[in-house]
């Protein structure tokens, strides 16, 4: 019930917005606005990339996962879902390995 309470308001707002945008998308002012908005969204994404990088652990394992995920998603047709699962397994295995080596 609580989940519903959190999800429902934005659900209704989004629904309304999607109808409004479809209704008015032929207006040139709306099209112009979205041209500008796309450049703004790119800026927000860059900010988010920076924040995520700051929050992410640093070290060899991290950099390999970062580079691997980037190259696989940007330049190969590998499904992103497999990239995510692969990076999870890679993190698990590498942490087990480091733990075992550290324990000896």
């Amino acid at each position: 019930m609580a989940t519903l309470g959190v999800v429902l308001p934005s659900f209704l707002i989004i629904l309304l917005l999607s109808f409004l945008i479809r209704q008015f998308q032929a207006l040139s002012a709306v099209q112009y606005a979205f041209h500008g908005i796309r450049a703004g969204v790119l800026a927000l994404l860059c900010k988010s990339l920076f924040t995520m990088y700051k929050k992410s652990p640093k070290g060899l394992v991290s950099y390999i996962a970062m580079a691997g995920a980037f190259i696989l998603t940007a330049f190969t047709p590998v499904n992103v879902i497999f990239v995510v699962i692969g990076c999870g397994i890679f993190g698990l295995l590498s942490s087990l390995y480091l733990e075992r080596r550290g324990g000896k």
Binding site: L49, S56, V61, A65, M66, A67, G68, A69, A74, S94
Partner: peptide, 12 residues
């Protein structure tokens, strides 16, 4: 430890 950096690569 693998997923957090992966997200960085994905967003990039």
């Amino acid at each position: 430890s693998g997923l957090k950096p992966a997200v960085v690569g994905l967003i990039a």
